[in-house]
Amino acid sequence: MTNNKFTATNSSYEIKRIVWRSGVLIAFAFIALFSIGISLVIGAVNISLPDIIQAIILKGTSIKGQIIWNIRLPRTFVGALVGLNLALSGAILQAVMKNPLADPHIIGISSGAGLAGIIVLVLFPTLDYMLTPVAFIGALGAAALIYFLAWKGGIRPIRIILAGVAVSAFLGSGISALLVLYSDRVHGALMWMVGGLTARSWSHVYIIFPYTICGSILAFWGAKHLNVLSLGDEVARGLGLRVEATRIMMTAIAALLAASSVSVVGLLGFVGLIVPHAARLLLGSDYRFLLPASALLGISVVTLSDTLTRILFSPIELPVGIIMAFIGAPFFLYLLRRES
């Protein structure tokens, strides 16, 4: 064995795969930018791209500028950030729960965040700055409850889903009860229950943005660990991964991403289910590529869906959550059938 044998370690196949994956990522980045552009241009009033750029530079002094700066720009940004957060959250949960059907909404993590958030909003309205941290605690609590209910000498995918559905229904009933009892205190409760982007302002952007940054950095840092985890718990342990610690840490990151989304748009479902799967179809299971791809695709899916809600039944706007559920529920059934 001579050392020059070791020079060509990256085979042409491996290089091709890296080129393909990088290409898909770049394409996703362009699609995300395009979707954001579409979302800014199209609405109750159509505004041309030059007008938009002018509005952004002048920070909205004309009428159209006002629309862009105060309404459409924050709404689009909130949509993009929420899409990114939920897609990452879903991708992480699918890895740590070993379950292709995991999604913060389906398994009740969003409901945990939602219930905690609603309690703050209706019972302690003066503490509204605590909304996201409290929602995060609610999300973590729901995740812990799901693990507790589903754990029986290991994690079985189907038990996670069943426990999640139960937890989701249980917490959801609490949310509904509070919304009915305190209907005078919660504006747009229905919108919030299905997840909507109507009237999202810059303050909502500021609420979610720090969590998106922190959550994304932590998620990308964990990508390699998620890859090792995908070999199975025993193999991962054999490779020196602290399996339980990784699982808790990554679930917490997913809960943080989901909770910050719930804080600004309510219970928006299915983004975290559809997006990682679509990304996986094109990129495979390597989380170092899958996570950024999911993030970019999440931006596109939510901003485009939201644009659709504005034009479909114009002048009436549907909550974006209705569009997501309309696409997502059949997709969920398709995955369920494919698994069994």
Partner: peptide, 25 residues
């Protein structure tokens, strides 16, 4: 530590499953 142990002891488990798109390398 988990890492240090994995540098000394390797384990081959029964019926380990690789993700579908993983190459041997």
């Amino acid at each position: 530590s988990a890492q240090k142990l994995a540098c000394q002891v390797a384990v081959l488990h029964q019926a380990a499953q690789a993700p579908g798109d993983l190459t041997v390398r």
